[in-house]
Amino acid sequence: MIEHRDDQGAKLGMWLFIFTELLLFGMLFVVYAVYRSMHPEAFRIAGEELDVTLGTINTVILLISSMTAAMSITAIQKGNKKLCLQLLGITILIAVIFLVNKYFEWGAKFEYGFYPGSPELHELGYGTILFFGLYFFMTGVHALHIIIGIGLFIYVALQVKKDKIHQTDHVWLENTGLYWHLVDLIWIFLFPLFYLIH
């Protein structure tokens, strides 16, 4: 039986999905831009509450995970299954570390009494409420994408292990990689806009 496959079509489909994701986050960035232009001082002061060190660490490790994800595709294309699985393992590990950092970061905010709808935030005025509302929502939706990415990578790694994804059929791995780079792409903008406000 001849197997029918359209890798170009599969990739185009993934890209169309990525466009919807870009517009979803894009519109959140528009909301951010409008509210920041209305409350520049409050956003600046609230931004200083965020942990730049933790934010930078997460940026760096996410960039590294993007590289390992891209490298896993090269590995499978060269027929190096073992290296591909190792690289996928590193990518998953980094994704988990990212979430652990996020947990501590959010936890520290909650301890200060900064969480959506908290009485402390209420006293600090609209600008601060809007900043933290957007911060929790946007990094939250981003973190959700990280969790989905981990699930996808685990699935893909299992398929590689079972030789369902191999040297000549790896579009699943490529599309998962594209999804992961999208997650990285969003973070590239989230990081300066929330952690590095001046």
């Binding site: 993007s66 594209l178 780079h181 999208l182 990285d184 792409l185 590239i188 300066p192 806009l193 001046h198």
Partner: peptide
């Protein structure tokens, strides 16, 4: 200008990710 520079650098980074990592 700080925000503008930050967005410019982020734009360059995004372009690099799109061009190389996203093929």
């Amino acid at each position: 200008l700080n925000t503008l520079i930050a967005m410019l650098v982020a734009g360059i980074k995004a372009t690099i990710v799109l061009a190389w990592y996203m093929h």
